[in-house]
C-alpha cells in the first residue's frame, strides 16, 4: 500500500505504479511499449475520473488533509515568487502555524496570510499541524492592520484542523485572540479575500477567514468542528466521523448551495496535489478577479457591504 495515496485512491496508485514500472523497462528494452503506457494512462485517468465523480463528504475531508496536498507556502511560491515573509506578533513570539507577509499577484501588492502545515514529521511538529496559538492570530492581526494602513488588500489561505487546544494557548488568551480578529476584520478598511485550500476547522479557521469574498477549493472542507470531534460529542464515538461529515455539510458544493460560499475552484483531475502549479494558477486568477471587483468600492462602501454580508448569515424564522 502506498502511503502517499488514500484508501480510495489505491486502485489508481496500483495503475500508476504499473505505468512507472513499464517506463523503467521501456528505457532499456527494444520493444516499443509506449502504446501500452498510453493505454494504461488513459485507463488511469478514467478510473480517477470515475472514483472522483462520486466522493462522499468523508472522502473529501480526507482529500482536504491529503499528505501530498499543497500547503500555503507551496501556493505562495507559485502565485507570488517575490513573497517576503514577516514574522512575529511583537508581544510574545512567532507562531510557525501561521505565515504571513508581503507579496505581489501579477503586479498587485497584497498581504498574504495563511495557516501552514508541515510536510514531514519534523516540520509537522514545528508547524504544530497547522494549529495556531494566540500569537499566530495576533501576528495575523498585526499584518492586517499593516495592510489597512498602506491600503493593500489582504488575501488569506485557510488550512487548519482548528486553533490549538493547549495549556499555554489558554493562558495567553486563545479565545480573546480569535474574538479580537473577528472584531477588527469586520471593520478593516481594505478588501479581504479568503480561500479555503484544505481544512477549514472551526474558530481557528474563521479567525483569519472573515472576508468580502469566500472561495473554496473543490476538495476542501469548512465546518464548525471536525467530523471526528462532532462524532465523538453527538454520536459518542469518533468512528462515526463519516456520518458526521455527511450531516454537517462540510463540502464546497453543499456550502455553495447553502449560500455560504461565493465561489468554488475546480481542482485538477485527482485533486490539487496531482497538478499543484495548475491549481495555483486557478487560485491566482480567482483572487485577482475578486480583488479587481472589490477595488472599485471605496473603503466606506466596502465595510458597509461586509457588515451587511455578515449580518445576513443565519437561517431562522420569525413568528
Amino acid at each position: 500500500m502506498d502511503l502517499n495515496f488514500l484508501d480510495f485512491e489505491q486502485p489508481i496508485a496500483e495503475l500508476e505504479a504499473k505505468i512507472d514500472e513499464l517506463r523503467f523497462v521501456g528505457d532499456d528494452s527494444e520493444v516499443n511499449i509506449s502504446e501500452e503506457i498510453e493505454r494504461l494512462k488513459s485507463k488511469s485517468d478514467s478510473l480517477t475520473r470515475s472514483i472522483f465523480s462520486n466522493l462522499s463528504p468523508w472522502q473529501v475531508a480526507q482529500l482536504a488533509r491529503h499528505p501530498q496536498r499543497p500547503h500555503t507556502l507551496d501556493y505562495i511560491a507559485e502565485i507570488s515568487p517575490d513573497f517576503q515573509e514577516l514574522h512575529g506578533d511583537r508581544m510574545f513570539s512567532d507562531d510557525p502555524a501561521i505565515v504571513g507577509g508581503l507579496g505581489r499577484l501579477d503586479g498587485i501588492s497584497v498581504v498574504i496570510i495563511g495557516h501552514q502545515k508541515g510536510r514531514n514529521t519534523k516540520s509537522r511538529v514545528r508547524r504544530n499541524y497547522g494549529m495556531p496559538k494566540p500569537e499566530g492570530y495576533r501576528k495575523a492581526l498585526r499584518l492586517m492592520l499593516l495592510a489597512e494602513k498602506f491600503q493593500v488588500p489582504v488575501v488569506t489561505l485557510i488550512d487548519t484542523p482548528g486553533a490549538y487546544p493547549g495549556v499555554g494557548a489558554e493562558e495567553r488568551g486563545q479565545s480573546q485572540a480569535i474574538a479580537r480578529n473577528l472584531f477588527v476584520m469586520s471593520q478593516l478598511r481594505t478588501p479581504i479575500v479568503t480561500a479555503v485550500i484544505g481544512e477549514g476547522g472551526s474558530g481557528g479557521a474563521l479567525a483569519v477567514g472573515l472576508c468580502d469574498s469566500l472561495i473554496m477549493f473543490e476538495y476542501s472542507v469548512y465546518s464548525v468542528i471536525s467530523p471526528e470531534g462532532c462524532a465523538s460529542i453527538l454520536w459518542k464515538s469518533a468512528d462515526k466521523a463519516e456520518d458526521a461529515a455527511e450531516s454537517m455539510g462540510i463540502t464546497s458544493d453543499r456550502l455553495q448551495n447553502l449560500g455560504l460560499v461565493d465561489e468554488v475552484l475546480k481542482e485538477p483531475l485527482g485533486g490539487a496535489h496531482r497538478a499543484p502549479a495548475a491549481m495555483a494558477e486557478t487560485l491566482k486568477n480567482a483572487i485577482i478577479a475578486n480583488l479587481q471587483r472589490l477595488d472599485a468600492l471605496d473603503a466606506d462602501d466596502l465595510v458597509a457591504q461586509r457588515q451587511a454580508r455578515l449580518k445576513s448569515y443565519g437561517k431562522f424564522r420569525e413568528i
Partner: peptide, 26 residues
C-alpha cells in the same frame, strides 16, 4: 460554544456577533 447541528451557519454567528459589537463600539 457554536451549535454543531447548524454547522457552518453557527460558526459564522461568531463573525456576525463580533461585527455587530464593532459597530456598537464605534
Amino acid at each position: 460554544g457554536a451549535r454543531m447541528q447548524e454547522a457552518l451557519f453557527s460558526l459564522l454567528q461568531m463573525a456576525k456577533t463580533s461585527a455587530a459589537l464593532a459597530t456598537l463600539s464605534d
